[in-house]
Design a protein around this nucleic acid. Structure first.
Lengths: 181, 181
DNA sequence: CTGTATATACAGTTTATATTGTACGGTTTT
DNA sequence: AAAACCGTACAATATAAACTGTATATACAG
């Protein structure tokens, strides 16, 4: 007879690989294992089930599942008559991908575009100083030049995010059809 | 008179922001500071200059600059008569972006597509077992189904990488023009 | 070929992150 | 209203990563 552990072993190996990938993107091992576990789980899961299946603490499940929710990799799901919170993995992985990277890229833009503006302001302010030396002017202008180029990058990235979020990207890189057998 | 430190202070603030962004993508603080420093430095730099400007150890500079090179965020540059290795930041940030993410995505595909194939093989092997129970068959088929869907995602991602690497992406998300003043 | 300078390997130390166990606050059931 | 249960905050521990200093290998100039 086929032991259940053989099926589980096949899952485990793939989950391990998923975990490694997610670690690449800065997610913790526990989040990776948790997501992988949920990926294979048909029904929405409770924190306790997660605890059992992953063998990790409930606290980890709580924080992990919340973090995964924030990234839209899993979703809360309500079920009438069930008190416990239920979560399931987002099944559309392309969607997860887009969600994940757009959030990151947005953060990058938000963070750096602001810092860039401040730096520009400061440098422009220095140019007004009457006692500035010619050498300093050169340096400041070089910096401003670099920042101006960087701004173009952020503009491009903003447009890229739009292209992904609007789904326009699929006009150029279509999602292959799923053919149920 | 404008002190040099005021210019440096403007730089430092922006570098800090860059560092934070890069941390988001899994790069260490030292790599972030180093890249940021090189971003503002006109000429190619030696390890010693990096050490001076960042205030960090030479070992950090050596490993950091090599890691940044692997990601194509900086480039080695030869200069006749100079024995020391010289490095400069890649000025085209859009190119850096594409290079960086395509490397990551390639790694993800390579790692997971392989693990997926192995999992499929294993599960299909289990189906051949004559003593398998109907319930197990259901479970295995559910798993195979999920994996089949995941494969579509990897196919899509492969195509996305191609679209970026070939430059085709710029037909749909063009890089804004730089207008020198 | 020798001396000198350069970059990296390695081990140790420091610092940060991930994970767990316990305790608490809020809700539902009896 | 009391009891039971659920999810999360918080502090403590375990684990891992970053960073440095010293030692070694490599490459170049004379």
């Amino acid at each position: 007879m086929v032991t259940p552990t053989k099926i589980e072993e096949a899952r485990r190996a793939y989950i391990e690989s998923l975990t490694e990938t997610m670690a690449m993107y800065g997610l913790s091992p526990s989040m990776g294992r948790l997501y992988g576990t949920m990926f294979f789980h048909e029904d929405p899961m409770t924190l306790d089930e997660m605890m059992d299946l992953t063998g990790m603490s409930k606290t980890s499940m709580s924080t992990g599942v919340r973090a995964l929710s924030a990234l839209k990799l899993v979703h809360k799901k309500w079920q009438k008559g069930v008190r416990k919170d239920l979560y399931e993995a987002e099944h559309d992985q392309v969607r997860s991908f887009i969600e994940f990277f757009c959030v990151m890229w947005d953060k990058e833009i938000e963070l750096n575009a602001r810092a860039l503006s401040r730096a520009e302001e400061n440098l422009n302010g220095l140019l007004d100083d009457p006692e500035i030396t010619p050498e300093e002017v050169t340096n400041i202008e070089m910096d401003l030049n670099r920042l101006a180029k960087a701004k173009l990058y952020y503009t491009w990235l903003r447009n890229l995010v739009k292209t992904f979020e609007s789904g326009e990207i699929f006009d150029h890189v279509p999602v292959p059809e799923y053919l149920d057998k």
